[in-house]
Amino acid sequence: MPRIRFALDRDFVELNQLLKLVGLVDSGGAGKALVAAGEVRVDGAVELRKTAKIRAGQRVRVGEVEIEVA
């Protein structure tokens, strides 16, 4: 499974923006659509809040790709 390590430079990042920043989607809108479709898991649970606050220590998974937020 491919892993991406994302270094957080603030308290949190919104989920749709995280997907854009790591290059899994081309825009924040595409990130929102992916989340709304139920394709994104945060710490193992499906996350449907498009702007959920993702903080250091959390793991986000889209398909086979896992993002480790540090």
Rank of each mutant, 00 (worst) to 15 (best):
L18K: 06
G38Q: 04
V65G: 08
F12E: 14
I54A: 05
R3Q: 15
A56H: 05
R41H: 11
I54E: 07
I4Y: 04
K20T: 10
F12W: 14
L19I: 09
V40S: 01
L8F: 03
A52P: 07
R3Y: 14
P2C: 04
D9E: 15
V42Q: 06
G28Y: 03
K53A: 14
D11R: 11
D11P: 07
L18H: 01
D26H: 13
R5F: 13
R41Q: 15
R41C: 06
K53P: 01
L15Y: 02
V35E: 05
A37M: 08
V62N: 05
I4M: 10
T51G: 12
G29D: 11
E68D: 13
L19D: 06
A56L: 00
G31S: 07
K50G: 12
G44H: 03
P2F: 01
F6W: 09
F6Q: 08
V40L: 06
R49P: 02
L48T: 13
A7V: 12
V13C: 08
G29C: 11
V22H: 01
E68N: 08
F12I: 03
V65D: 11
G23E: 03
A30S: 13
A37E: 14
V22S: 08
L24V: 06
G63S: 08
E47H: 02
L19N: 01
G28M: 09
K32E: 14
R3G: 10
T51I: 06
N16E: 07
L18Q: 01
I4F: 01
R41S: 03
L18W: 04
A70L: 13
A56N: 04
G23A: 07
V22N: 09
E66R: 10
L24T: 08
R3F: 12
V65K: 05
G57S: 02
L48C: 07
A37Y: 01
A45D: 14
L19S: 03
Q17Y: 05
N16I: 00
A70F: 11
D11L: 08
E64T: 12
K20I: 05
E66D: 10
Q17H: 10
A7F: 12
V60A: 00
V40E: 01
R59Y: 02
M1Q: 10
D43C: 10
G28W: 09
L8K: 06
A33N: 11
V13L: 15
R10N: 14
V35T: 03
N16H: 11
R59E: 15
K32H: 09
V35G: 01
R5S: 13
V62C: 10
E64L: 13
R61Y: 07
V13Y: 04
E68A: 14
R41T: 08
L8Y: 00
V60W: 09
E47C: 13
M1N: 09
G44N: 10
I67P: 09
E66M: 15
E14K: 06
D43Y: 04
V35D: 09
D26M: 03
E39T: 06
G38A: 00
V62M: 11
R3E: 15
V22C: 10
K50N: 08
M1F: 05
K32L: 04
R49M: 00
V35W: 03
G38V: 05
G63P: 05
S27H: 12
I67S: 00
V60C: 05
K50P: 01
I4E: 10
L19G: 06
L24N: 08
